[in-house]
Design a protein around this nucleic acid. Structure first.
Lengths: 212, 212
DNA sequence: GGAGAAGATGAGTCTTTGCTCAGATCCTCG
DNA sequence: CGAGGATCTGAGCAAAGACTCATCTTCTCC
């Protein structure tokens, strides 16, 4: 009623037109990702990011409306990278027998998490209730992907609830990998762990089928 | 060389001696846990906590050296509570057949996470690289517990690497539950999910054994 | 009752951080 | 070359939050 307070008086974000603008944006995102990965969310202040990127804070705010927007962009890029790695590791799986396919899947998921483990963790921490959307959407997509892959080989599997099984597998494996990454990062290279994951997947599939 | 800078000039924390002191401490911890659970780590400022607890900030700092110490205390209490719930839900499992024992384990783990889901999540977020020690120690203990339980029924199981299997199961289930809690909290009550978890555990155990 | 310890207060200090703005500098293109 | 837009600068503002301290109140116990 009183004064019509302007909510968003200016649209701050500028899309780079000249190439040097793009270079600057990349430098900022890169710097932020590095700090995030190396020192955690708390250290990733806008000033620190700008300093590391070698630009002034003013420049940073020319391209990002606020700190959140910057984090969101990092999340977007990270997810895209993971997606690419996953897709690459999963090509040409159609012809494989189940155990071989599972091996392939395990190494794909591990590889995907190895892209930028510290950053992945930092994002999961800092993206409080907001940018997790991006990551969540990706995880949902992965679950759907796995579910359809399970349905795809219907003959030898015949699961009563492929989606449910996919959900359990994807979330379980993801959690396992994230916990391991945080507590014993070096262990991700342990072949025994990969075998154990394989056993978990195959066992879960077998046991789930029997229930049909 | 120059001035011998005093590092920790005062030990600020006072242990409550009179009963009203204990009451105050409890109120503070309780208030902090509530804010943490309801609004996340960022909202849990020392001033907000003191206000909610109905005491002045000065009082808060009489009992806690700093914000970290307060968070650490909350972590300690939360872990203790989870431990109690888990222990309670696991008593008298010795005589049970494997499937029944697994059912029991599943509901115990779910119950344990249901103690204070939002707080659990907030702690996992805020306890950056510090108080996670407390939670980590607990999780390690759970892994050891499960491992020994697996060894305990050696006859019908005979796993080649009980610790590894326990690790995979505990971390996998924990991750699955945490993810579900964050994205679809209501689903934790879904019996189908419990069944799927059961299948995962039984399947993993069976498949792991076969490898021996 | 009253001395002294335990407990509580909260205004205020100090620091940090997100973010703005009034310009300076660089590029493109006619 | 030079006009005008794109880009960049960085001192500094305002807000927020952790924490202190001088002082007051309440309790214990002889």
């Amino acid at each position: 009623m009183a004064a019509p307070a302007r909510k968003k008086p200016v649209k701050r974000r500028r899309s780079p037109i000249q190439s040097r603008g793009q270079v600057t944006v990349d430098a900022i995102v890169e710097a932020a990702a590095q700090i995030l990965a190396k020192k955690g969310p708390a250290a990733a202040t806008t000033n620190a990011v700008a300093a590391r990127a070698g630009v002034s804070i003013g420049t940073l705010y020319q391209y990002f409306a606020d700190r959140e927007a910057l984090l969101r962009e990092i999340g977007r890029r990270h997810v895209a990278e993971m997606q690419a790695v996953l897709a690459g590791a999963l090509t040409g799986m159609e012809g494989l027998a189940l155990p071989a396919a599972v091996d392939r899947l395990v190494s794909a998921i591990v590889a995907m998490h190895r892209v930028a483990p510290r950053l992945h963790q930092a994002l999961h921490q800092s993206l409080a209730r907001d940018h997790l959307d991006t990551i969540d959407a990706f995880e949902v997509a992965v679950e759907a992907m796995v579910a359809s892959a399970l349905v795809g080989r219907g003959d030898d599997l015949d699961l009563p609830h492929p989606e449910l099984t996919a959900t359990v597998l994807v979330r379980g494996l993801g959690g396992l990998i994230r916990t391991t990454l945080r507590r014993e990062p070096e262990r991700l290279d342990d072949p025994a762990l990969a075998l154990a994951m394989r056993a978990m997947i195959l066992g879960t599939l077998g046991e789930s089928r029997r229930k049909g």
